Computed example of a mutant assay.
Amino acid sequence: MRYPLETKQLTKRFKDGDDTIEVLNAVDFQLEQGSFTAVVGPSGSGKSTFLSIVGALLSADEGQLIVDGKDISTMKDQQLSDVRLKSMGFIFQSANLIPYLTVKDQLQLVATLNKQTKKQSLEKIKAMLDDVGLSHRINHYPHQLSGGEKQRVAIARAFINDPAVILADEPTANLDEERSKEIVALIKQEVKANNKAAIMVTHDESLLTYCDHVYEMDHGHLKQR
């Protein structure tokens, strides 16, 4: 069976003075097509390190990372950049929107980086904003949006290049309970509608009901609940 994302014996160590800390210990993991998976664990357990490595933002010391059927473990920086652009969508704690770009242009920038023309991408941008309930904000700037609306833009931006994998790092950390549930429900909706695969790192146990699978990071090991 081919998975959108798979790790084999993924290991990561950090130096702490004279000591070496094994943050990830030979992690084997498969992310299923069409699934929404959560990774939980206490602060410092390694869950964000895991997400950074599977997102090709940080390299592992040992093991394999297979994305969309390709082993990217030994790829060079430019190749990894292409993988992130074409095969992955990222949603972070902060929406990280560019202050001087409108909602439409935030998404257009990502589409342009992926060599889509404005004509090709405009219809998709409009459809994506309609999906996340922001059609009426298409020409607004970030300072005109609420926190929840900014995260909706971030979700649309993550999906705009039709990536195989969506990675969300504490996407509701800056939102209240009601908005948090709205945002996670929206991520799930888009994952299912587009048959994508997503991993969400979260500390909020109340959001786990939206997920198909829950894994816990514990002393470098990733275990399914």
Results as ranks from 00 to 15, higher is better:
A168W: 07
Q144T: 04
E205S: 10
Q120A: 11
K119F: 11
K192L: 09
G63A: 01
V103C: 12
Q93F: 13
A185M: 14
H213A: 05
R225W: 09
E178R: 14
G55C: 12
K76M: 07
E182I: 12
M217S: 09
A156R: 05
Q78G: 02
H219S: 15
I53P: 01
G41P: 08
Y3Q: 10
H140G: 01
N139E: 14
I125N: 00
L186I: 06
G55N: 02
A156N: 11
F92K: 03
S87D: 14
E22C: 13
Q9K: 15
P163G: 00
T7N: 00
E190D: 00
K8V: 15
Q30N: 08
V201N: 01
Y100I: 03
F29D: 00
D28I: 05
L31I: 14
S59N: 05
H136G: 06
L134W: 09
A127L: 07
S45T: 07
L5Y: 15
V83M: 09
N161T: 02
K118G: 13
K118I: 15
V132N: 01
H136Q: 12
V39H: 02
L207E: 04
V110R: 04
Y3N: 12
L167R: 05
V153W: 11
K15G: 08
K76I: 07
G55E: 00
N195D: 11
V39L: 14
L24M: 11
D212E: 12
R137K: 08
G148D: 12
D105W: 04
V39T: 04
K70T: 09
A111E: 04
P171Q: 09
L107R: 06
R225Q: 07
R225T: 03
I53M: 07
D61Q: 06
Q189R: 12
V40H: 06
P42T: 06
Y210M: 07
S135Q: 12
L24R: 08
Q151H: 08
I183K: 01
A185I: 15
Q79W: 02
K192E: 11
D105A: 04
T202E: 01
H140V: 03
L134C: 05
A95Y: 13
T112N: 15
K118R: 12
A26E: 14
A156E: 13
N114F: 14
D169A: 12
R225N: 03
V191S: 02
L57R: 00
H213R: 14
A158L: 07
V67E: 00
S52A: 09
N195H: 10
K104A: 10
D68K: 13
E190V: 02
K70C: 03
H221C: 03
D204S: 05
V23M: 04
L129I: 10
V27Q: 09
H140E: 03
E216N: 04
Y141T: 11
D162M: 05
A154E: 10
N195W: 03
L65P: 01
I53T: 01
V165G: 03
Y141Q: 10
S73G: 05
Q116H: 13
V67S: 00
E205R: 12
F159G: 02
D68C: 06
I160L: 05
K124Q: 15
E149N: 03
